[in-house]
Design a protein around this nucleic acid. Sequence first.
DNA 1: TATTGTTATACTCTATAACTATA
DNA 2: TATAGTTATAGAGTATAACAATA
Lengths: 156, 156
Amino acid sequence: MDNATSVQPAPVLETHLGYWLRLVSNHISGEFARALQEQGLSVAEWVALNQIGRGTALTPANLADAMGMTRGAISKVLDKLQLKGWISRATSPEDSRVQLLAPTRQGKRALPELTTIADGNDEHFFGALSATERATLRKLLKKLADIHQMHNIPAE
Amino acid sequence: MDNATSVQPAPVLETHLGYWLRLVSNHISGEFARALQEQGLSVAEWVALNQIGRGTALTPANLADAMGMTRGAISKVLDKLQLKGWISRATSPEDSRVQLLAPTRQGKRALPELTTIADGNDEHFFGALSATERATLRKLLKKLADIHQMHNIPAE
DNA sequence: TATTGTTATACTCTATAACTATA
DNA sequence: TATAGTTATAGAGTATAACAATA
């Protein structure tokens, strides 16, 4: 017997918009994380690689701020990306405390494939909405992000 | 210097609706989780207590299915709720393998306070939208949940 | 044999704090 | 002294698998 559909959420839960947001977001993010995992990658690693892949000279401190994570945590994420041979760390000539992050040739080559996964995930889940509905959803989410000053790049 | 606003997400990230959904959802859920944490409660515990608090005879297996977690994980969540004195476990008279979950008097008394926290969180974040916008957002999220058959109660 | 629930174990992720090197 | 980055340690959360009791 599958009880998943027979047990409904308590009424109070469903009344919250936050409930629906979390339901949908966790489902979509979870599926995306699973797809990345097949490539041996976490969401945080994917976000970091994307940032570094832009070519902009980034430092671990920049990344930590942008992703809302501690420097210690970022350090480990970078270790994994470096172990995969996708990024390099180089001491800044201007300030030798600073590490400059850059994608390797391999890293640059890997990014398009990963982007395809992200595109596919988005298309799979939001393709069911019309262009107008997608635009509306984007507008509402952006509005919430703007009003509440959400500018960390989510990596959970 | 605060780099959080100076480091922008790579363009490819922003194009995904999933990005905005994750940004907003993680922010709101994170704030809610923090508020619950002040009461010494995790989101999973709160969801479980809500389900049990309905009064419907629930079992750990029901909860595991409903919340998309393993029975082992649910068992630990229930341990914590029981330790707080908010739920009771009783062997079912019909099948002594089954444990029937029920809220204690204390648990029933705690729920309204916790609901107030959830209400406040929702109001804080979505109050910035008009009633029409909230209705639209709810409709779109429900549509996505419906189309993709998302019926687990999110507890991350 | 199959099922319910618990426990044992391990793993991932992240934070806190100590530490090194440089400024 | 302050800052960038790393490392050491610990904690939360969850899954997998082994287990005991019951059907």
